[in-house]
Design a protein around this nucleic acid. Structure first.
Lengths: 205, 205, 205, 205
DNA sequence: GATGAATGAGGGTTCATTCAT
DNA sequence: AATGAATGAACCCTCATTCAT
């Protein structure tokens, strides 16, 4: 619906790659179709054979970035680790995803254009945060049923945990105040988040 | 350094007011100097007499918005309330500021242009979040010295608290997914944050 | 010379039909080869297999429209009616043709592009007006020879008659100022033209 | 309403002159704003400071061409010449105007775009033909009142006369089939038209 | 010091045309 | 013989910036 599907998917992908570069770097308004065409190594006409307009190309970029990056953020939780360790793993994954280049970029660009493209903001939220929250809530509910946690409102607790995990990191990254990804810092923050979370929702044996 | 100081400050303020309207509404790239001039009721030439370029006008706008909005967010904490109640008040203030129109707008605009104007992102961080964190850290350290709290790393704990207070709210606002401001929701979130915070950093009498 | 004759005439006709629709509706510059291809249900490539360029396709369209529409305008004059009645029939036919959709369209399009395609203007004139004038002149000469009319310069008189028959109608149609075709108005105008013509070229018994 | 009147009329006129050249040569669709700017010796931006869009520039051009050319076509009729001679003068004037460069050009361009700009076609008709017909009708009515002519329907007779005066000339000019203006041909045609007109509407002493 | 008309590069988009399939 | 994706020049229009008044 966002693009003509009859055209070669390779060219489409090639264009989306170029668009990703440019949108990520310049934002929606700052990006120019000419630049995208140049970066993608296609002619401007080809851009318009594949995407009806700049807005639709942007939508397709956001869509694909969401699909590529955000869904699988919550893979592989069901292990035989204890609750604390699993929490830490989930937290670590989440933060790594949020601080990844693509994660930050898509967030930045979606927030910046949330007013102009509300449906994109919504799609982003559903594809990313909402899904992660739902999965985590489910996991919390299951552990609570097992008596390993005591969580009354699993969705809310999930959101609390994710918020805690961002401490000190996300805002600084979003503001571009930090360059390199500090593995150690993530570890510390997630450990503190886990501890705090369990202080409230853990069960004492 | 950002503007010619010999010119009348009234005109400068008038321009900044117009610029605030337009930048807030259209973002940096979407705003046009013509529109700003029109909204500010000055000629385009006057714009350029007061500000060297669009980028510098934008910088001045961000600077002034930071100054106007973010400093006083942390006023009036030192009261004779108990620790829990004071925490809740601080949290409420913080969230209200973050969800306010100007707060969201300046945040959105700074994040969107963080790559293009890194020094602005930094200025915003220092004027807003950094200051709030520092003040809160100081308050936490004082309470710890009094034996009313047990906080090892006050700055970090402050950031944790602020993160907890955003739960469920900020992201949805930033993404424009919510219209009206829910007083009750803020109350609930802040109460939960306070409880969780005290579960970890409180002292049991 | 205008097209490759080795290709299937059906496709050619199919294309010309589509081209007729689009050129009539949008004019030469306003028409797009893509739209013509779509309307004609062929690919753009096929367009260019049959016609070297947009200009040549346009030429072929004008040619075919002339051929289709203008030649038979002067059929069926030689009847046993008296001179006045025959004049009126000829006038009526002529006007109906000139006011017909195709007649107006081809005229409009040829006049509009007369400077860009002078040879088309000439072809149109020869295929349409010139032929009608010649036929009418011949008829006038014959009647003069019979003593039923007194026409010195038959070609000129023919042109006068055709001009008279347009009175009040053609210009308004060309300017799109009138929607429906007024049978009664045509009748009145042609009757007046016939009367005036006979006042000058008739013979009094 | 068609343009910003606050700007210098000279530049406006300069632009309209350039636009006249280009529109006359290339038609509406064929004309490009870049070319108009170049021919008018202004920048493209200036074009848009003076006229909101290509369509409005075109409208202004048609308006000014109508005003400049068509109004005064019917000046100086009230002389002491006899009816036949006056008719001939009127006819001559009319034909000369219709065959003039500007007359032909504006007609061509208005007819070509009559569908796209119906209000312009109407404005042209009212400014040109309608006015001429009304003036002539008035003159015919006056002569009829004096007993020098016997015209029942003056407006219709006026239109007949103007049609007759075009004989052989206008169509050929509109189609660009003739280059030079033949004074003698005009004389002949108008004389014939006058004769024919008086054969119907004259009074025999 | 303030103005706003003028500039021209660059914006998104369309389109006649080509050519590998 | 037919296709339609790719091309890139040219389209109309906007805009940050300048400068004569």
């Amino acid at each position: 619906m966002l693009a003509n599907d009859a055209l070669s998917p390779e060219k489409r992908a090639q264009i989306l790659d170029g668009a990703a570069d440019v949108f990520a770097h310049d934002g929606y308004e700052g990006a120019s179709m000419s630049r995208i065409a140049a970066v993608a190594n296609v002619s401007k006409g080809t851009l318009y054979n594949h995407f009806e307009s700049k807005a639709q190309l942007f939508a397709a970029y956001v869509e694909s970035a969401c699909a590529r990056n955000l869904c699988q953020a919550f893979a592989a939780t069901d292990e035989n680790l204890d609750v604390a360790e699993t929490l830490a793993r989930i937290g670590r994954r989440m933060v790594e995803m949020m601080l990844s280049d693509l994660g930050l970029t898509i967030y930045r660009v979606v927030v910046a254009e949330a007013k102009k493209f509300p449906e994109l903001a919504n799609a982003f939220y559903e594809a990313g945060p909402a899904r992660a929250i739902a999965q985590m809530a489910q996991w919390l509910a299951a552990r609570t049923a097992e008596g390993k946690l005591a969580v009354e409102d699993p969705a809310f607790a999930a959101e609390q945990f994710f918020c805690l995990c961002q401490t000190r990191l996300w805002l600084r990254y979003k503001l571009n105040l930090q360059e390199a990804a500090p593995e150690a810092a993530i570890e510390t923050v997630v450990a503190a988040a886990t501890r705090m979370f369990l202080n409230t929702y853990g069960v004492t044996p």
